[in-house]
Design a protein around this nucleic acid. Structure first.
Length: 794
RNA sequence: GGGGAUGUGGCGGAAUUGGUAGACGCGCUAGUCUUAGGAACUAGUAGAGUAAUCUGUGGGAGUUCAAGUCUCCCCAUCCCCACCA
């Protein structure tokens, strides 16, 4: 069979669509809005197959919605600040700006070869001063609200990239998500966003969102809400007393407390306050605090050291020993933990290691393994004996003078970075060192260029003479600029607003347009951003909502995570492994339509999964498009009831599956239809046009070409999506499945409204099926109209 | 340890949501055409059996006229979190 020349066709129509501005949407006038969003790419250099999977496949839905009469905003932009640019610049002696914008230029060209229906007029680039002006503006709003603040804190330090990282950017093995370096802990004065203030709403508002449960659960677990009690304990040494609390979810086991452990950070605080805890304790605390996550691995033997402190039990008033131990975290709860070795695994391990008393306070009625952390009736608990653990939780906490309290795993978002290629934090310090925002009229607060950005651990902006002079000139002598840049996740946590109104000079987006276009209808992205970008965006959105800057409380109506394309060997694609599939080669060989359809055909798009690249399968898709092309030769005058029925079934199927992102079954339905049409000698032009319309979102170039070839003018992509005729579908006969005693014994072709008796009569006539009934009597018949008839015999 | 998901032919995956399991594509087998084909087309393709038929959705129970789908218990794989008190 002859194929078609994809190169000529694709070039021709990409230009024609571009010239006609076919996909530009007038956000002000548009009605029937639909906002489709895909996480914008980092301008790393070349488009890879993952970009194709991310952008080419959702384009199917965008084109479909347009044919359904929607005004579709389907934008593209670049998340252009960040370390790769800076590192590449250092390596090659370039300017990160140059490197970045050259890459953007290259990726734009490659995106155009994709033939996507992007509205390029809406493009945003986060490194553009016209964009980051508003990143800074949003920062100042949060600063005014007290949601951006600076504090001395232990932070994650990446010794390779020489910068601070957010908790979300550190992996569970203690290495940095980006550089792979083992992250260190460092005490620094740092900027934070108070995302913890929104912890409850970030969890509770998930209930109203139509998101996949696995995404909601991941966010809930990340925030990690935990209900418990804070119970007062007094820790004393000599004439000094420290009135503190422990956080526990099991206040009911309070009478089983035999020791107290405090975090190394708390020990250090006490020493700093002049407590004499001894050199051993000081040394232990200092060592423990320098350890990173990998060194403090789970299930390792518990370590700690006894302090001269004494704690007083709030109920029994008994004296308890106090230990410093690195299994107690300084930044969760109060950093002080009550040790209940009989009913907590960690406390038990610690008690065994240091030979501490173990008192059981839950009567489990049978020999249970110690420690027992389940529920039961209390014992050895004085007045509370025989109460259930569950009921006693609050009463014991109250009796001890404590109160119920909720804590979270989520920490405030550390946002300062000691690197160059980022959005400058728009803060200046007066001569007393007090922070002030840079007023709006001085925004954008431009990133200086007179900077040597070789990382030293000190922010490169500190070396900018221009920034220093600019600050003094505007604010006065003795004023100094903030020299850190913002985490790039801040740049990307609001870009979806800017797409709506990217050229607005007066606001980050016009309020009316925000009201009209937000929230995003469908947001597709990678699962790695569930607890990063998506969570941050929800936080920023809620903060702005509270300030009445944005009109909706949630930014994304639907969020889906897509899968990942792996190399042919089943491993993640990487240059090092040599298993990278280059989309340019595929487009050259098979054409953009084929690559797009193949990626759509690979599996359900709205579910995350792993797809090893199969180099053979793509030929099946190319064959399919070639066959569609060849089919045009069969156009003639022909009425065919079978074809009409199959056509309407296909319209119905594709119209149902496509909006659910089931692109693979939509294509399968079109292939089935083609299989039927190919068996015919002649097919009508109507039928052929309809199949082109149905295929247009999937294979935009070839359908457009064929649309013209068979005598139509204009763009197929502005035609209306075909409707199916329910009358045709209802009039069709069906194959009714027949079961005898629950076993399938064949089918009978009948009309859809057949009655049970009519069906039985036909079955009696059918020797092959009725043979299974034989001489037996019919005891019962289950008849499900249109589906099945099941005959039960004696 | 906690949370989430997944398990269907040689492979990617379908299954009207409880109603003929394996649609569609790849691969494979045979054939046609061809000097040749790793091109194209035709037919076949879950397993066993010449066949009627039987067996089959990770394993085991259960509910039901009917279970890939619902319930319970296991097993395996993957992802996220993890000394969070």
């Amino acid at each position: 069979m002859e194929g078609y020349n994809h190169k000529d066709i694709e070039q021709k129509w990409q230009k024609a669509w571009d010239d006609a501005k076919l996909f530009a949407v007038d956000t002000k006038k548009a009605k029937n809005k639909e906002y489709l969003l895909v996480e914008f790419p980092y301008p790393s250099g070349d488009l890879h197959i993952g970009h194709w999977f991310a952008f080419a496949v959702p384009d199917i839905y965008a084109r479909y919605l347009r044919m359904k009469g929607k005004s579709v905003l389907f934008p593209i932009g670049f998340d252009a600040f960040g370390l790769p640019a800076e590192n590449a610049a250092i390596k090659h002696g370039l300017d990160p700006k140059e490197w970045t914008f050259k890459n953007i230029e290259r990726m734009r060209e490659q995106f155009k070869l994709m033939g996507n229906s992007f509205d390029w007029d809406k493009e945003v680039v986060t490194a553009d001063p016209e964009y980051y002006k508003w990143t800074q503006w949003i920062f100042t709003k949060l600063f005014e609200e007290g949601l951006a603040y600076k504090k001395e804190a232990t932070v994650n330090w990446d010794p390779v990239d020489k910068t601070v990282l957010a908790n979300e950017q550190v992996q569970s093995d203690g290495t940095a998500e980006r550089s792979g370096a083992v992250v260190e802990q460092k005490l620094m004065n740092q900027w934070f966003f108070k995302i913890t203030k929104y912890a409850d709403r970030l969890i509770d508002d998930l209930d109203d969102l139509d998101w996949p449960d696995e995404i909601k659960d991941a966010q809930k677990n990340w925030i990690g809400r935990s209900n418990g009690a804070e119970i007062p304990f007094t820790l004393s040494h000599g004439d000094k007393n420290w009135f503190t609390h422990v956080f526990t979810t099991r206040a009911d086991t309070l009478m089983g407390v035999t020791f107290i452990t405090i975090a190394p950070e708390r020990a250090k605080d006490l020493i700093n306050d002049g407590w004499k805890l001894g050199d051993d304790v000081a040394t232990y605390a200092a060592t423990a605090m320098g350890k990173n996550a990998r060194e403090r691995e789970v299930n390792k033997e518990k370590t700690g050291i006894k302090t001269p402190l004494v704690a007083i039990h709030p109920i029994t008033k008994k004296e308890l020993p106090v230990y410093v131990a690195d299994y107690v975290l300084g930044n969760y709860g109060t950093g002080v933990v009550m040790g209940v070795p009989a009913h907590d695994e960690r406390d038990h391990a610690f008690a065994v290691a240091y030979d501490l008393e173990i008192i059981s306070v839950i009567d489990t009625k049978k020999e249970e393994e110690v420690p027992y952390s389940g529920e039961g009736a209390l014992m050895n608990s004085g007045d509370f004996n025989n109460e259930t653990t569950h009921n006693a939780r609050e009463s014991i906490a109250k009796a001890a003078g404590g109160e119920m309290k909720t804590t979270y795993r989520l920490r405030d978002w550390s946002i300062g970075r000691q690197r160059y290629w980022g959005c400058p934090i728009p803060i200046v310090y007066d001569p007393e060192g007090k922070a002030h925002k840079v007023p709006e009229k001085h925004l954008p607060w431009i990133l200086p260029t007179d900077v040597d950005f070789t990382p030293t651990g000190e922010s490169p902006l500190a070396r900018s003479k221009e920034l220093k002079e600019r600050t003094e000139k505007i604010f006065g002598e003795g004023w100094t600029p903030e020299v850190e840049t913002l985490d790039t996740f801040m740049d990307s946590s609001w870009y979806f607003y800017r797409y709506i109104d990217p050229k607005n000079k007066k606001a980050f987006a016009d309020a009316k347009l925000l009201k009209k276009w937000m929230p995003v209808n469908k947001y597709s992205g990678g699962s790695e951003h569930t607890t990063l970008h998506v969570l941050y965006s929800r936080f920023i959105n809620k903060a702005l909502f509270d300030m009445k800057v944005v009109p909706h409380e949630e930014p994304f109506t639907i969020r889906t995570n897509r899968g990942l394309i792996l190399g042919p060997d089943g491993n993640k694609m990487s240059k090092r492994e040599g298993n990278v599939i280059n989309p340019d080669d595929l487009v050259e060989k098979y054409g953009a339509d084929t690559v797009k359809c193949y990626l759509a055909f690979i599996g359900p798009y709205n579910e995350p999964g792993f797809y090893p690249w199969n180099p053979d399968s793509i030929t099946g898709i190319r064959r399919f498009l070639d066959r569609i092309y060849t089919l045009s030769k069969k156009i003639g005058n022909m009425e065919d009831d079978e074809v009409t029925l199959q056509l309407h079934k296909t319209i119905e199927k594709v119209s149902r599956d496509l909006p659910e992102s089931k692109f693979h079954t939509s294509l399968a339905a079109l292939m089935s239809l083609l299989n039927i049409l190919e068996k015919k000698d002649i097919i009508s032009k109507d039928v052929y046009e309809t199949i082109l319309l149905l295929l247009a979102p999937f294979a935009p170039h070839i359908t457009q070409e064929l649309w013209e070839k068979i005598g139509n003018t204009g763009f197929i992509h502005t035609e209306a999506w075909p409707d199916f005729d329910t009358k045709v579908l209802e009039a069709a006969t069906i194959m009714l499945a027949v079961q005898i005693n629950g076993k399938s014994r064949g089918t009978i072709e009948v009309s859809q409204d057949i009655t049970e008796q009519e069906a039985l009569d036909i079955i009696k006539e059918n020797e092959r099926i009725s043979a299974h009934i034989g001489e037996n009597k019919i005891k019962k018949v289950i008849f499900v109209p249109g589906r099945i008839i099941n005959i039960l015999t004696t």
